[in-house]
Design a protein around this nucleic acid. Structure first.
Length: 286
DNA sequence: ATATGGCCCTGGTTGC
DNA sequence: TGCAACCAGGGCCATA
């Protein structure tokens, strides 16, 4: 389940590889629309545009695109002068993958979109469960994509405290709410609460200022650490080159029900909270 | 403002 | 061994 570190890893990988490349042809599968923009309109909108930058906003991958050109060449100075005029926004849902492939690579089942690039490579979107979403935005007709919540890597102590105080819901549910922070999912909610030694069921508004600051620090540290390790491969997550991450080896509680807590050896407990499997140490987290 | 449950969807696991 | 029920959960929606 791609969360902030996995999405960041993929966005960086795609940026590094495809900067300056140009979309020659866009193919979309014909199953019932999993997309925000109808497939035909996306394909038409994407073709001919150069990739100026690829970055992460919340759990979304945003590709900044140039104006369309009839030329099939790559765009050697991409990003230096051009202002983007369109965006392609990818949300991976639970099982989505965005892969940079060579054209001869066999097409994985559940490939829903394939962008052929001027370099000959392809950018493929694969998503077995179809929880992912693809969207095309023409920036001459509307605003660029913005996440509803604040990025957990850059939020200040003051803003973090403001965001969570006086809310009457469990802190884990608040962490998962993308309208507050954008980018935190089930893995990093559980892992940051463990590192901050806070029980997931504690009400957000009942946390002290010190606890909230410990949580903010734990969250940003765990996210940064996970980005350095290329994310967590718990199900079948891979980056833009199909390479697995390593942060799952650093998990202290997530999917470790019954296994010993790394600090006190007490078996990790699993409960259901906000409809999500939730893992914590009953001794270390208060 | 918050809570709950359903929906989407497939693949892996469990149970008979 | 084979098949079906069940579970996983991010985001969104309707309802309470």
């Amino acid at each position: 389940m791609p969360e902030l570190p996995e999405v960041e890893t993929i966005a960086r990988g795609v940026h590094q590889r495809l900067l300056g490349d140009r979309i020659v042809e866009a193919w979309f599968g014909s199953h019932k629309e999993p997309f925000k923009t109808p497939s035909a309109r996306q394909a038409k909108g994407l073709e001919g545009r150069a990739i100026l930058a690829v970055h992460r906003t919340g759990k979304h991958i945003v590709c900044e695109l140039s104006a369309a050109s009839g030329s099939l060449q790559c765009h050697p100075n991409a990003g230096l002068a051009d202002e983007p005029t369109a965006q392609w926004i990818v949300h991976l849902g639970m099982t989505g993958r965005l892969l940079v492939s060579t054209p001869d690579a066999p097409q994985a089942p559940h490939t829903h979109a394939r962008l052929t690039l001027a370099s000959g490579r392809e950018l493929r979107f694969v998503d077995p469960r179809r929880f992912g979403r693809l969207e095309f935005r023409d920036l001459s007709r509307g605003p660029g994509f913005t996440a509803p919540g604040v990025d957990p890597l850059t939020i200040t102590a003051e803003d973090f405290a403001q965001l969570f105080h006086r809310r009457r819901l469990p802190i884990k549910a608040a962490l998962l709410n993308q309208n507050l922070l954008s980018g935190v999912g089930n893995i990093y909610a559980d892992e940051s609460l463990f590192r901050a030694r806070i029980r997931p069921r504690r009400l957000s508004g009942r946390l002290t200022r010190a606890e909230l600051e410990a949580l903010r620090l734990a969250l940003s540290q765990v996210l940064e650490h996970a980005i350095r390790l290329g994310g967590s491969s718990v199900s079948d997550y891979v980056d833009a080159d199909g390479v697995r991450g390593f942060f799952q080896l650093e998990h202290c509680v997530y999917l470790r029900a019954g296994l010993p807590c790394p600090l006190c050896q007490t078996p990790i407990r699993r409960i259901l909270l906000a409809g999500r499997g939730t893992h914590y140490c009953p001794i270390c987290q208060r």
